[in-house]
């Protein structure tokens, strides 16, 4: 049977790897090509580059990174960030990307998905979605407020508090003690709520020809309290295309949980970048938990 995939994600800004904690407090964590090669050698099943560079001119650095990486890393490369036209998709594929992720650009112009899929095939079109729970109970409103404050730039101490609140909120919902109204789609790196319902948008993207979904839970992202299992399950039920779960990984058990919940792949960043665990250790645990993985 098919293996579940482990995908390290490198957030790249002007040629350097950075990783935001809940999309703020970005820290430098190394050279992208070097990290890519390291993860390739360690057994990554795919790699993901997310270009968070603000200006279009500075994106040339990203093309160079992809070109160099593709010459020495022989696993699929997904590249996303700022993709807003068919030309952007083509440029990334020509630089050596195997799949291209689109997010805000697809929300603004959904025909981008269909046009890109018609031109290059669904197999290389990944819809990236950043979603957040709709507030539904006093607890989750607390969490919402924490998240809002966090985006304005709180320090590390407050972040821990926020993470705990999110974790409690997730548990409450899983237990069924609070009703869930669904998830909203956010764009612009999580700064803007579109009002789109996540499940409806993801279904539309599948209809339009997206070949895979990269699903990021903004509630869980950076929390290290585990992936949003309920969200992942809901999305896997809604579509037939593969789903990559992202946001919230704190340890190997979290990865196993989300893969068992139906995700086809798990996206990992900080816990790998900061050496808290290794791909090898995660795969060993997956093997023990009878989740098939490529060795």
């Amino acid at each position: 049977m098919i293996s579940k995939r482990i995908i390290p994600c490198l957030d790249v800004d002007k040629g350097q790897v950075v990783k935001g904690v809940n999309f703020v407090n970005i820290q430098k964590a190394g050279d992208p090509v070097e990290l890519a090669r390291k993860y390739y050698e360690m057994g990554a099943d795919e790699l993901c580059f997310l270009d968070i560079t603000a200006s279009h001119e500075d994106r040339k650095a990203t093309y160079e990174i992809i070109k160099t990486t593709a010459k020495e890393v022989f696993i699929p490369l997904t590249v996303g960030g700022g993709v807003s036209s068919v030309k952007d998709v083509e440029n990334l594929l020509h630089a050596g990307a195997d799949k291209v992720g689109m997010n805000s650009g697809a929300v603004r112009n959904p025909t981008l998905i269909s046009e890109a899929a018609d031109n290059f095939g669904s197999q290389c079109i990944v819809l990236a979605v950043d979603v957040k729970r709709r507030p539904s109970s006093p607890e989750s409103q607390t969490s919402q407020r924490f998240s809002d404050t966090r985006r304005e730039g709180l320090g590390k101490t407050e972040l821990t508090g926020a993470s705990m609140s999110i974790s409690q909120n997730l548990n409450n919902t899983v237990d069924g003690s609070s009703s869930l109204l669904g998830w909203d789609v956010y764009v612009k790196g999580g700064r803007e709520c579109t009002g789109l319902d996540a499940l409806e948008w993801i279904k539309e993207a599948e209809q339009r020809g997206a070949g895979e979904i990269l699903l990021t839970s903004m509630d869980a992202d950076g929390s290290k309290a585990g992936y949003d299992i309920e969200l992942t399950r809901a999305v896997c039920d809604a579509v037939q295309i593969p789903v990559i779960a992202s946001g919230g990984a704190g340890n190997a058990d979290h990865v196993i949980d989300v893969l068992k919940a139906g995700a086809d792949a798990a996206l990992l960043a900080s816990i790998l970048h900061y050496g808290e665990t290794t791909i090898e250790a995660i795969k060993e645990k997956m093997h023990q938990a009878s989740v098939r993985t490529r060795v």
Binding site: M1, I2, S3, K4, R5, D45, S122, Q123, G211, E212, C236, D237, Q240, I241, P242, G262, D264, A265, R294
Partner: peptide
């Protein structure tokens, strides 16, 4: 045991 996805995407 689990929902089957199409495309068949990944390592096998």
């Amino acid at each position: 045991s689990e929902k089957v996805k199409i495309p068949h995407m990944g390592w096998n």
